[in-house]
Simulated assay, not measured.
Amino acid sequence: MLLTCKIGFSSTDSVMPLKLVEAGIPKEKLGLIAVPMIPIQVLLPLVISKYSTGPKPLNVFLKAIPYRLLLGVGAAFLVWITPTLVPDASKGLPITYVGLLLVLYGAHQACLYCMYVSIMAFFAKISDSKVGGTYMTLLNTCTNLGGNWPTILALYFVDPLTWKQCEGGVEAIDNACRTSVERDLCVSKGGKCVTTIDGFYIETVICIVIGFLWLWLWGSKTIKYIQALNENAWKLAKRKTDKR
């Protein structure tokens, strides 16, 4: 469960910031968006902890997943509308666009902290105190690994999923600009490789579909099952020693 629960968010979390930068939004502007979120990031764990300290802390985790998946639609919309709302980022960002960024980022942080606080509460509940922090470290490592490998795949598949076409030039070329050779050929003929379908949108849809299928077919049942287990099921078995 820990290794697969973040597949549905991988495109939004890893590719969207890069697409905003590609659309012309400066990195420092995106960095400043995080400043107003600091009070929210401080208060969210305090609020969420009230609902994650009971016998079923993963209920919060489970309820946050659909909302975080749907934020992928908002992320794709934001990337799509960025060139229209911000034709020239050097002149500053419009208030409307900043508002959209803050709303989307705030909603993302809320879902992120709901999942993070609840999963940490569950780890603290089931960890065997006999081995100290080693148990929680192992669980956290699995959680981090479950977020890293989908990110790598999401970044890798953006370009293969992107559709481009060579346009312009002195000759009509049936060139999809898939390889460096095709791109060089397009430029040599006076053309330009133009993106017709950005792979980010295709990847976002695929990730959202995978995320909901994971939740409905396996994730929800698995989370409820492991949460219902007795705490003794998570304890390390005592090693029997021979008495002579």
Rank of each mutant, 00 (worst) to 15 (best):
A76E: 08
G106I: 04
I25W: 05
V158W: 11
W214H: 13
M115G: 08
E203I: 00
I48L: 04
L104T: 05
A110N: 06
Y156A: 14
A228R: 12
V170Q: 12
K240A: 08
C142N: 09
S10A: 15
F212C: 10
G147Y: 01
S49F: 01
A237E: 10
G72D: 04
P94I: 11
K164L: 06
L93C: 07
L71M: 12
L138S: 10
V79D: 06
G106L: 12
T4N: 05
V117I: 15
T241V: 13
C111Y: 01
S11K: 01
V158C: 08
C5S: 14
T222D: 15
I7Q: 06
L46T: 04
E171C: 02
K50Q: 10
L213C: 09
A154G: 05
W218M: 11
L18S: 08
T195D: 10
N230C: 03
G211M: 01
L100V: 00
F122Y: 15
I7M: 13
T179G: 12
S10V: 00
T4R: 08
G54C: 07
G99V: 02
L217Q: 09
K56Q: 14
A64P: 02
D88P: 10
C142H: 03
V21K: 09
D128A: 08
P55N: 15
G8A: 07
E171S: 15
T204E: 13
E171K: 15
N232Q: 14
S52Y: 08
E28T: 09
M115L: 08
L3S: 10
L69E: 03
D128T: 04
A233Y: 12
M16P: 05
G72W: 01
K6H: 03
K221T: 12
T134V: 11
K29H: 08
V131D: 14
I197P: 00
K19Q: 15
R244M: 04
V42H: 00
Q227A: 06
A172R: 11
L138E: 04
W216I: 10
I81T: 07
S14W: 07
I210G: 02
T179D: 10
K243V: 03
L85Q: 08
T222M: 14
I7K: 02
G147T: 03
A237R: 05
K243E: 09
I95Y: 06
C166E: 09
K130E: 13
M136L: 06
C166N: 11
A176C: 04
A233D: 14
L102F: 13
L215V: 05
L236T: 05
L101Y: 03
S118M: 10
R239S: 07
L229G: 00
A228L: 01
G132S: 14
T96L: 15
T222L: 13
